[in-house]
Simulated assay, not measured.
Amino acid sequence: MNTPFHGLPQGTDRIVYVRPIAVADLPDEVREQIVGLETIYSVHGADGRQLALVADRNLAFHLAREHDFAPMSVH
């Protein structure tokens, strides 16, 4: 594949990372608010700061894009 990549249009300061989180690993006060899910998704800034917890991956990506961030998956 010889497709040139010119970088992300927003620059590296607008990247956020989306990763799955096991509900069982969350603090009790957070787990009490989550019903019927085993996994949720966390959105983190480039500095590692947690910005949001959401119910599914699609929502995490949508949320990031709505706030002019470029989401990237982290496993």
Rank of each mutant, 00 (worst) to 15 (best):
Q33N: 06
I21S: 03
G36Y: 05
H6Q: 10
S42W: 01
A60T: 04
R49A: 12
V18R: 00
R65T: 15
H67K: 07
L51T: 13
T12S: 02
Y41H: 14
G48C: 05
V54W: 02
H44R: 15
T3E: 09
E29R: 15
M1P: 01
H44I: 03
M72R: 14
H75K: 11
H44C: 15
V35R: 11
V16H: 00
P4I: 06
I34M: 11
H75W: 11
P4A: 12
Q10I: 02
V35L: 09
P20Q: 07
A70L: 10
E38C: 00
D25Y: 08
I34S: 10
V30Q: 15
G36D: 07
V16A: 04
V35G: 00
V18Q: 01
T3Y: 04
Y41Q: 02
D25A: 15
E38P: 00
L59R: 05
H44K: 14
G11W: 09
M72S: 02
I34Q: 08
L59I: 03
R14G: 04
V30C: 08
E29P: 08
V74S: 03
D25G: 10
L63M: 09
A46M: 13
T39H: 05
L37N: 03
R57I: 08
T39R: 11
R14D: 04
L37G: 03
P20F: 11
A46G: 15
D25E: 14
Y17G: 02
P9N: 04
A24F: 01
A55G: 07
Q33E: 11
L37T: 03
P27E: 07
V18P: 05
I21A: 14
L37M: 02
G7A: 05
R65F: 01
R31F: 00
F69M: 14
H75P: 10
V54A: 05
S73N: 12
V23Y: 06
H44L: 14
V35S: 09
P27T: 02
D68Y: 09
M72H: 07
P20Y: 04
P20E: 04
R14F: 03
A70W: 13
L37E: 09
M1T: 06
V18H: 01
M72V: 13
D25W: 10
V16F: 06
G7E: 05
A24D: 11
Q50L: 13
H6I: 06
A64Q: 08
I21E: 15
A52C: 12
D56C: 08
F5A: 05
R57S: 08
P4E: 10
R65A: 15
V30H: 06
E32A: 15
G36M: 06
D13S: 12
D13W: 02
I15V: 15
D13K: 10
A60F: 00
R57W: 02
